[in-house]
Design a protein around this nucleic acid. Structure first.
Lengths: 229, 229
DNA sequence: ATATAAACCAAATCCAAATTGGTATCCAAC
DNA sequence: GTTGGATACCAATTTGGATTTGGTTTATAT
């Protein structure tokens, strides 16, 4: 066959054949379609030609492929690698505090519903350890763990993931901002009483007090943060 | 030996012996120390007694343990899963709805503070287009854009980023589900009135109504979602 | 020349076996 | 009767090899 125009025609035929096949089969929930080796056999075309047709559909954004995983319908799920770094670059401490005040009280409210005795025991451990901390670094470690334990107690992996993202951005934003006071937290540090009020509210299933306590606590933190600037 | 006071003394001895051993060995980079069975043999004590000593050190927060992983020095690392694919895999539609109900009303409250006339104009555009949608796919596109416009109006890049993350997980989790309805949204679809109430509240700077409206809207969505199961 | 088939590669997945902290049971010692 | 030690077992996790899968190369045939 000397005329090369016949070949594109043939390839387009494979593409439309593949389109019809994909429209007809009801694929799995994850949108995965059969591996190329099976698909080429089912369609009666060679794997090479099938891959050309898949290239077209992939260029159209109708499917995406990944080695070892397979070929999937729909658009490729967002890759979230630069997320935290990008967010931290465009954000600032004030925004982080505002976001915390928006999110954490509601997470705390949900946690007051679902916290288990084990969760509350871990919260109490964090309270004790944060009081005993010898350095600000130790205190902040236990403070962070307390807040995350509360998020865990919500028993919602998605909320916990969002909390982790927020926390990662917070760490990235406040990176290098060393605390100016070398001393350890004083016994009358405002967070101690506020933290205990929150945990008490969670333990007594007082959801309103849990949310209000967390909001008041974070607003105090925000005020101290802005005063220092 | 009749005097039982010797036993507590002996246990404390094991704790100090363990402390010395841990201070002497240079453990791996990850801070992992030998499994209990080896450690008990190395220290010449039974596994039961060793575990008692480890309990003490764990209560002090100097080490942490996890089944199948091992025992590690230092404080428990926060296994953060901020990856969208990982989140979607471990989450489910019910969790996504709960997370939306926790987050979006508060984002909406913040937006009622800061929304500009341009933001509100875009919201109104979304309302109009969603009413005119010919297919569910089109409707969902405008619905999604309305919710994101509200998040944008909060003027907090971090909150917007968290909203985008939540939305990406929602798309990944609900992918392939709810394909059963080929018809387009009916004119009396509940979302139309609810959406308008939210935008009205934002426009009038009625912060409480904005948050309440969004919460009511999402609770309706959640109820419809669960009814269908 | 072009398409096909086959082989190979690296990334990802799968699966059974081994490891590990946690727990229960039985037994000896005092 | 209580305490401590040895053993066995459990569930969560890790490990390592085999398999699967998309991507690439090579040889062959038409």
């Amino acid at each position: 066959m000397l005329n090369p125009s016949a070949d594109p025609h043939l390839e387009k035929g494979i593409v439309t054949q593949l389109r019809g096949y994909l429209a007809q089969i009801d694929l799995a929930d994850d949108g995965r379609l059969p591996p190329e080796r099976e698909l080429s056999a089912a369609l009666g075309v060679s794997r090479t030609e099938l891959r050309k047709a898949l290239d077209v559909l992939e260029a159209e954004g109708q499917l995406w492929r990944h080695v070892g995983k397979g070929t999937f319908m729909g658009s490729r799920p967002l890759d979230t690698f630069a997320d935290i770094a990008a967010l931290a670059r465009r954000s600032n401490p004030a925004e982080v505090m505002r976001a915390r005040i928006v999110m954490e009280p509601e997470i705390c409210r949900a946690a007051a519903f679902t916290a288990t005795p084990e969760d509350i025991a871990e919260m109490r451990l964090c309270l004790t350890r944060s009081r005993q901390a010898d350095t600000w670094r130790q205190y902040e470690a236990w403070d962070t763990r307390l807040h995350r334990t509360i998020a865990e107690a919500s028993q919602n992996t998605l909320l916990l993931g969002l909390f982790d993202t927020l926390n990662a951005v917070r760490r990235a934003v406040t990176w290098g901002r060393l605390r100016t006071e070398p001393v350890k937290p004083l016994p009358d540090h405002h967070s101690f009483a506020e933290h205990e009020a929150i945990v008490d509210a969670i333990e007594h299933r007082d959801i309103a007090a849990a949310a209000a306590g967390m909001r008041a606590h974070l607003q105090t933190v925000e005020r101290k943060l802005l005063d220092r600037q």
